[in-house]
Design a binder for these strands. Structure first.
Ligand SMILES: [Mn+2]
Ligand SMILES: [Mn+2]
Ligand SMILES: [Zn+2]
Ligand SMILES: [Zn+2]
Lengths: 166, 166
DNA sequence: CTATTGACAATAATGATTATCCTTTGATAA
DNA sequence: TTATCAAAGGATAATCATTATTGTCAATAG
């Protein structure tokens, strides 16, 4: 995501805003995250413009599309090779820059020509861990509202497969 | 995915058909793949039934939802912990059962409680490799139709991020 | 036999993403 | 500076996958 005004693409206020928002951002935002955040400063911005700019940046190799969340695509302005640790509860994503030297043995690779890899780590962030702890210490039954919320969060879970992958 | 009629869930012709299709299947099919295939034998089957059955199986822990393909969800009846190797060209997915013993060092894990991980390997399958080779040996310019097709395939690529991840 | 329940099909609704269409604007050079 | 024009933006319609709703039916309990 280097410099704000890279060569070759026409700079517009909208693009500057998106690039500024993305620059150094480690939140792995969705298209809507980008749209919503920038909308605060530039309410006239169209959602279509966000999508089109994302597409442009992807094609230029300046933005990665993460396929971690089944509900929506997330984007990563850090195009260096790295991995991700995802909170199965709140869906927070943190970068992992370890180099894991993994490689598939020839005999298991089905003659594929290897290009790369990406590891998704699943876990629970400290905040979510704390938020769930109380249940273990309370003997009061959860209210139906709380239960509802919890089930809902689970149903829309970013990582349904993940919980089972363990 | 064990026995067709596991305890607890009512067996119906539709479910039997889906379970039979899924049993031992290593294609990681999408909901539509399942619907289309089963439709050959049972044309009266509803798409909604496929989705509901998928949901049921997921909840029972007998089916994993893969978030590998940004365009659609894919399902895996093999719930054992394993990884996947994906052809960036044709999107074929093959299972990798190696145990990679990877773990994030404490100081990089942001105090997350680790739950699991999943590795996506990217590569090109032998068939796709062969299908692309000719270009290297031909000096004839590609036709606009061929070019179009190639770009189209790239635009809709299952793994746009992947090519860049390298 | 009748009520209950779970599953089905049909179909509507949602939500994210993409496409279309017309207007505006940034960059270039006369 | 101004004319030019392709690129970019905005509004909005269309798609596509997925989810929700509704009425019907069949198996089963009582
Ligand atoms: Mn990242
Ligand atoms: Mn698999
Ligand atoms: Zn969390
Ligand atoms: Zn292939």
């Amino acid at each position: 995501m280097k410099n704000i005004n890279a060569s070759g693409l026409k700079m517009t206020p909208q693009r500057v805003a998106i690039l500024e928002y993305l620059h150094g951002n480690t939140d792995h935002p969705s298209a809507e995250d980008i749209y919503r955040e920038i909308g605060k400063k530039y309410p006239m911005m169209s959602f279509a413009t966000v999508y089109k700019t994302i597409e442009t940046l992807k094609n230029r190799g300046e933005l990665l599309e993460l396929t971690i969340d089944p509900a929506r695509r997330r984007y990563d302005p850090d195009t260096r090779h790295h991995h991700h640790l995802i909170c199965v509860e709140c869906k927070k994503i943190v970068d992992i820059y370890e180099d894991f030297q993994i490689s598939v043995p020839e005999d298991h690779a089905c003659s594929f020509e290897m290009i790369g890899n990406h590891i998704e780590f699943y876990g629970m962030c400290p905040e979510c861990k704390k938020r769930k702890e109380p249940d273990l210490w309370e003997n009061s039954p959860v209210t139906s509202a709380e239960q509802q919320k919890r089930e809902g969060a689970n149903r829309n879970s970013v990582l349904p497969a993940v919980n089972k992958t363990l």
